[in-house]
Simulated assay, not measured.
Amino acid sequence: MTKGERKRALRGRAGRMKGGRGSGRASAGAVRLWGRHAVEAALKNPERDHRKLWATREGVASLDGELPEDFPVEYADVADLARLVAKDAPHQGLVLECAALEDVYLDDVLTGDPHAPLVVLDQVTDPHNVGAIMRSALAFGAGAIVTQDRHAPPESGVIAKSASGALEHLPWVRVVNLARALEQIAEAGYWRIGLAGEAEATIADALPAGPVALVLGAEGEGMRHNISGHCDALARLPINEAMESLNVSNAAAIALYAAATRA
Rank of each mutant, 00 (worst) to 15 (best):
Ala142Val: 06
Trp172Tyr: 03
Gln148Ser: 14
Ala142Asp: 10
Pro153Val: 02
Arg83Asp: 14
Pro153Lys: 00
Ala99Pro: 07
Arg174Gln: 15
Leu96Cys: 01
Asp113Lys: 08
Gly141Gln: 08
Ser162Asn: 09
Cys98Lys: 02
Leu81Lys: 01
Gly131Pro: 05
Phe140Arg: 03
Val173Asn: 07
Val78Arg: 12
Thr125Phe: 09
Ala139Asp: 04
Thr111Ser: 15
Tyr105Thr: 14
Ala152Phe: 04
Ser162Ala: 15
Gly93Trp: 00
Phe71Thr: 11
Ala137Cys: 02
Pro114Phe: 06
Val176Ile: 06
Asn177Ala: 09
Val109Glu: 01
Ala100Ile: 05
Ala86Leu: 12
Asp149Lys: 12
Ile145Ala: 06
Ala116Tyr: 01
Ala163Ser: 15
Ala137Met: 01
Ser156Gly: 10
His151Cys: 10
Phe71Ser: 13
Asp80Cys: 06
Asp108Arg: 14
Ile159Leu: 13
Ser162Gln: 07
Ala79His: 11
Ala163Pro: 04
Val158Ile: 14
Val175Lys: 05
Ala132His: 06
Glu69Cys: 03
Phe71Val: 07
Glu74Val: 13
Val73Gln: 11
Lys161Gly: 00
Pro117Gly: 13
Glu74Gln: 13
Leu118Arg: 08
Val175Thr: 09
Asp108Ala: 15
Pro154Val: 11
His91Asn: 00
Val124Gln: 08
Gly143Met: 04
Gly93Phe: 00
Asp108Cys: 05
Val119Arg: 05
Asn129Lys: 09
Val158Gly: 02
Leu110His: 04
Asp80Trp: 00
Val175Trp: 03
Ser164Arg: 11
Thr111Phe: 07
Tyr105Lys: 12
Gly112Glu: 09
Asp113Ile: 05
Ala82Val: 03
Val109Asn: 06
Ala152His: 06
Thr147Trp: 00
Val146Asn: 04
Leu101Val: 02
Tyr105Ile: 08
Leu118Ile: 09
Ala163Tyr: 02
Ala144Gln: 03
Val104Asp: 10
Arg135Glu: 03
Pro127Leu: 10
Leu81Arg: 03
Met134Ser: 07
His115Thr: 11
Ala100Arg: 15
Val175Asp: 05
Gly165Val: 07
